[in-house]
């Protein structure tokens, strides 16, 4: 299992990477952490003509506090996310979810941006980005642009990234005071892609309900997906069982080898009810 031949170029800047990509055409790939790409190459599932190594572009690495948000460089490694005090303080959802991403050696090498750009339907980070209403900073031949998470994840491994366009940063708004998060996933083994997962942000309490809610399921559809029905039910103050009952209403759910469509719908509902129960218990205790 050896990959087919390809050319290799190392880019010193994001601009150079984008220029190289334009030159090389559609069969070139950006190489960041490589933890998914190189596995696909080894299986010859993908046979690019060129890899453009962006791994050493320092400007794309690190976590910065900006106005009301954290701006995470695309090349920031999962291990750096896990170790970040800023993330732990401001984005506890990400801090919790990052530990479910694969295994230590993968987290040492894999990048936050790589995970977002790959958009695996069962991956944790795209789900978190969606739940947190992240904004993706892209750089293409025509310059930079920003795309909201809601418009970024389009389908199975499909994103708003145009050919040759590079994800440079992910800007995640810091949730307002009174918001809380929930996260849970069901995987057959530690570190495996989840059979079903839930990443959610709930706005401050308003009576029985919530100011807003962003309920995201992963591992059940072609991408991380929000559940409008569950969000509406939560905002309206419905009981956890009722919110869970409509968890996947209107969503296109797809089965896989570990769980059929109906099982995934069941799991989504169980995860949501359990997390809502937990939050409710904790808030009542305070």
């Amino acid at each position: 299992m050896k990959s087919s031949s390809f050319a290799y170029r190392r880019a010193a800047t994001a601009e150079e990477a984008v220029a190289l990509a334009r030159e090389a055409g559609e069969d070139a790939r950006f190489l960041a952490g490589g933890q998914s790409l190189l596995a696909a190459l080894n299986f010859r599932l993908d046979e690019p003509c060129m890899l453009i190594d962006i791994g050493r572009i320092g400007a794309l690495r690190g976590i910065r506090r900006v106005e009301g948000a954290l701006k995470i460089g695309a090349l920031t490694r999962h291990a750096e996310i896990a170790a970040s005090v800023e993330i732990a303080k401001h984005l506890p959802l990400v801090a919790q979810a990052i530990h479910e991403v694969a295994h230590p050696a993968i987290r040492n090498r894999g990048t936050f941006g790589g995970s977002i750009a790959l958009a695996d339907a069962a991956a944790e980070m795209p789900a978190c980005a969606l739940a947190l209403g992240a904004r993706m900073h892209l750089l293409g031949p025509d310059g930079p642009r920003r795309v909201a998470a809601d418009e970024f994840f389009l389908g199975l491994y499909e994103t708003a990234l145009e050919p040759g366009e590079l994800l440079t940063h992910v800007e995640i708004p810091i949730p307002p005071a009174g918001a809380c998060h929930g996260f849970a996933e069901l995987a057959r083994r530690r570190g495996d892609y989840a059979m079903a997962g839930l990443a959610m942000m709930l706005g401050p309490r308003t009576g029985a309900g919530r100011d807003w809610a962003r309920i995201v399921f992963f591992g059940i559809a072609d991408r991380a997906v929000r559940s409008p029905s569950a969000e509406a039910a939560i905002v309206a103050g419905a009981a956890p069982e009722e919110c869970a009952a409509c968890a996947t209403d209107g969503l296109d759910v797809f089965g896989d080898m570990n769980a059929a469509e109906s099982t995934k719908r069941h799991y989504a509902a169980v995860l949501l009810r359990r997390e809502l129960d937990r939050i409710s218990d904790e808030e009542n205790r305070v």
Binding site: D53, P104, N108, R109
Partner: peptide
Amino acid sequence: CTVRLDGASVRSCLMLAVQ
């Protein structure tokens, strides 16, 4: 294939030698 790279464990099958 796990080895230590700049002090951290990595999979040497998910890295190119050129990297």
